[in-house]
Each structure stands twice: as C-alpha cells, then as structure tokens.
Amino acid sequence: MARESFAIGNVRVRAGAARDVELPITRLVTGGDVSLPVRVVHGREPGPVVWVSGAIHGDEVIGVEVIRELIATLKPKEFRGTLVAVPVVNVLGFMAGDRYLPDRRDLNRMFPGSPRGSLASRIAHLFMTEVVAKCEVGVDVHTAADKRANLPQVRGDLDDRRTRELAEAFGAPVMVHARVRDGSLRQAAVEVGAKVLLYEAGEALRFDDESIATGVAGIRRVLAFLDMIEPDPPNELPPSLESRSSGWVRARGTGILNLETRLGAFVETGERLGGLSDTFGKRVRLVRADRSGIVIGLTRAPIVNAGDALVHIAAVER
C-alpha cells in the first residue's frame, strides 16, 4: 500500500516527492503578501517526521545555506519519513537584514504564540501548528548575536536520553547542556513532546565554510541515526566534548580590544586571552580566563566598555 500523503497548509505532498509550500503570514501595506517558505520532502517509505529551521533571527543567515545544501542532497524516492525544511522563519527580519521583526520583537521569545496576537505571536503560532505539531524531532539553526562569533556547537537537554543521543549523533565539536528560555521555540516544542537540538555556529550576516559544512554533515548524521537516509562514509571525527557550564569573560575596563585567543582554543584559569589599550596604543588592562575550558564564543567588536562580554568559555572534560 502506498504511503499516505503529507498535509501542510492547504496542500498535500505525495509520498516519494518534494514540494515547496507557501504558508501565508500577512499582507504588506503595499498590498504584497508575505508567506513562510517551506520545502517538504515526503519519503516513499515511512519514518520519523523532522523539521529543520533557520533565521528565526533575521540576521542569522547561516541556517538558510545549511538547509539549502542539506535538501540538495536528499532524494525523496530514497528517503524514509518526512523532512519539513523552513530556511527562513523570520521572513520580514531576513529581508531587512535585521535580527528582529518590524515591531522590534524577538520572534524567539514569542512561542507558542497566538492566532490573534502581535505579528511575532502570529508567526510563532503558525510555525507551531503547521510545522512543530506534525514533527517529533527538530533542529533549529542559529548563529552568534551581532558582532560575535560562535564555535560550531549543539545545545539541548543532555539529561534527556533521546536528546542526548541526537546530540551525540550530530557530532559537533561541543555539545552544551542548556536550559530552555521562556518563549523560545525550543521550550514550546519540548512542551508538546518534540526533541530539539539547537545548532549554533558562526556570525550574523556572514557565511563561513566551516559552520555550514559542520551543520549540513551534522543534520545528515541525525537523519541517518533516525534511519531516514543511508549513513555517509565514516570519517574520524572525535566524540563531541560535553559542557554543563559556561560563562563569558567580561571587560574590566574600557578600551580597544586585541584578542590573542581563537574559537576552539583550550584555555586555563588565569591564562592571558588578550588586552585592552587606549587610542594611543598604551596597554591599560589584560584579559584573562576566569575558568578552564574551550572557547566557544568571541566578540568581534574592537571597542569595548566595562562589562562587555569578550570570550565565552565552556567547561569540558578533555
């Protein structure tokens, strides 16, 4: 018996096919319609239903390229289960190159949303009802905030056995045990029973090959772990380092920052990470590690004020 078609919006996607779907969001003041773009890959054989999403923050563009490259590798007739790919969730922010929506709301603090709330709340509700409600596993792709960079890493509830298995299958350099944030997609999805990974890598408004390649390969490993695709040829990846605590080293003064560390570096408590200078080049303060671990985030801003976050260090077992 042929597998049943997959319903989303007002369309149905037949088994063994891929289809692009537009889910209406709103109408612009100019009269143009804004829709949520979705690609559904509905395999010929049964299996899990998984979503991948990017650009919940409109300036976090790496997820768009990760998803584009991922779906280019999938063949619906050989696929088991269903993939719901949403490369751009915050469509209006993405078009403007802005993290937020036009009303300055953070979409990732508006879940699960409401059909009668603000624009952000309505988009969150649409995503929950048309995507998350149909899926059992999700991978949400993010980058660092503006003027920061992240080492490729996955975040999730590592105390949940299934989520931990998915994080280990992803194979990022670091997996971080992270609490959910109120109003986030991950919180809302977990509350309705989904298992969710956050993939964090790279910088806002920038593509970089390492972040993209790690994301594509990691999601493919998750799909293979779920038996939705055949595994890629094995490579000698080291196991992901596990972190259960992390924190930012913050500036103890104001100045021009010169960092002497890099993403992925292992540091020890008290180790020199860089320094702050005045505008004439006089060194006014050193920056030192306040804990041992691996550098998973950095600021890219050269001018810093007292209290600014400079280096994100995750404690790990080496």
Rank of each mutant, 00 (worst) to 15 (best):
G193H: 03
G81H: 11
L185E: 08
K134G: 03
A18W: 03
L310K: 06
I67Q: 08
V84S: 00
D160W: 01
R186H: 02
V40L: 00
D20T: 12
G9A: 12
R162D: 04
Y100W: 08
N150D: 15
A124D: 07
S211E: 07
V249Y: 09
R181L: 09
L276K: 10
V50F: 00
Q187D: 12
L276Q: 05
A204Q: 10
L273N: 12
V216A: 02
R244Q: 03
T214S: 04
L205W: 05
D103W: 02
F111S: 11
L263W: 13
T261K: 07
F170K: 03
D20L: 07
A17D: 10
V222S: 00
I296W: 06
V190L: 13
G293N: 04
D140A: 05
I212Y: 08
R80Q: 04
T254N: 10
P112F: 01
R105G: 11
P152W: 08
A189W: 14
L198F: 15
A120N: 12
L298R: 00
R252W: 04
R179C: 02
R122M: 02
E271G: 11
L310S: 06
A167P: 03
I67W: 04
N108M: 12
C135N: 07
A2M: 12
E60S: 03
S118E: 12
R288T: 15
R12P: 00
L241C: 01
V41E: 03
E317G: 07
S118F: 05
I219Q: 08
A224L: 06
V89M: 07
R3K: 15
R148N: 13
F225N: 07
Y100S: 09
P115T: 08
A201Q: 01
V64Q: 14
V141A: 03
T269F: 04
A315L: 01
I219S: 08
T214F: 01
G58F: 03
D290C: 01
P102S: 03
E210K: 10
V84M: 00
D278F: 06
R283W: 13
S292K: 04
D146I: 14
R181G: 07
L205E: 12
E203N: 06
E200H: 12
E210A: 10
L185C: 09
V316A: 03
N305K: 12
M175T: 02
R291I: 10
G275S: 15
I313A: 09
H312A: 05
P24T: 02
V249P: 06
T261S: 14
R109F: 04
L257T: 07
A306F: 01
E203F: 01
L36N: 11
V49E: 15
S243T: 01
G247L: 08
G156C: 14
A149D: 13
S53K: 00
G270I: 04
R39K: 15
G93E: 09
S246F: 09
R288L: 15
T26K: 10
R262C: 13
A213S: 13
D209F: 10
K195V: 05
A149Y: 06
G307A: 08
